[in-house]
Simulated assay, not measured.
Amino acid sequence: MRLTIAMEYGIAVILYMGLACNTLRKTESPYVTIDEISTQCDLSKNHLIKVIHILGQTDILTTIRGRRGGILLGKPFADISLGEVMRALRKIPEGRQGESFQQDVRQLLTLPIQEAEQRYQEAMDQVSFADLVEQFKTKRSGLKNHTSRS
């Protein structure tokens, strides 16, 4: 399985939401807006809308429409796994029409690929966004310390 742009955006949204709860935000509102995420993370607003819509259909995000609306985490940050976000944003590839030999090869590879994806998803389910945020904070503080010495 490869990381799609939608998955990258979804991961960025959840990370921003986790970080924004404590440090990045200048507003008192509990809601994070798409404009805020787009600006702060330098992400395309149009792609963000699609990703947030999909995540809002799950229990990962709660979306509130309207002028004073925005986005909230749908459940505790530590309970959101990387695998869960990736599954929500995975597009199922369309089957290709081809010659019978190619179809036979694809059919032969179906089971091994499914088993590999299952192991991959199990590994991603072990990674919480709380873990990622701590790694992110550690990396950021290391970069700040390194650049301040120069």
Rank of each mutant, 00 (worst) to 15 (best):
L73N: 01
L73A: 03
L73F: 12
K75T: 09
K75I: 01
P76L: 03
F77I: 15
F77Q: 08
A78Y: 14
I80S: 06
I80V: 15
I80D: 10
S81L: 07
S81V: 12
L82C: 02
G83D: 00
G83P: 07
V85Q: 06
V85Y: 07
R87V: 01
R87C: 07
L89C: 14
L89P: 05
R90T: 04
R90N: 06
K91D: 06
P93C: 02
E94N: 06
E94T: 05
R96G: 06
R96H: 04
Q97D: 11
Q97C: 10
G98H: 07
G98C: 05
G98E: 12
G98R: 13
E99N: 08
E99R: 07
E99P: 14
E99T: 01
F101N: 00
Q102S: 13
Q102G: 14
Q102D: 09
Q102E: 13
Q103Y: 00
R106G: 09
Q107E: 15
Q107V: 00
L108S: 04
L108V: 08
L108W: 11
T110Y: 04
L111G: 12
L111M: 01
L111Y: 09
L111Q: 07
P112F: 05
I113W: 11
Q114C: 05
Q114P: 01
Q114R: 01
E115F: 02
A116P: 01
E117C: 04
E117H: 05
Q118C: 02
Q118P: 00
R119K: 12
R119L: 09
R119T: 00
Y120H: 08
Q121S: 02
Q121R: 05
Q121N: 13
E122N: 00
A123S: 10
M124N: 15
M124K: 00
D125K: 05
D125E: 04
D125S: 02
Q126T: 09
Q126G: 07
V127Q: 15
V127M: 15
S128I: 08
S128T: 15
F129Q: 09
A130I: 13
D131N: 08
D131V: 07
L132P: 08
V133K: 10
V133N: 14
V133D: 12
E134I: 10
Q135I: 08
Q135P: 02
Q135K: 07
Q135W: 09
T138R: 03
T138S: 08
K139V: 06
K139W: 13
K139H: 14
K139M: 04
R140E: 14
R140Y: 04
S141W: 01
L143Q: 06
N145I: 03
H146M: 09
S148W: 03
S148R: 08
S148M: 09
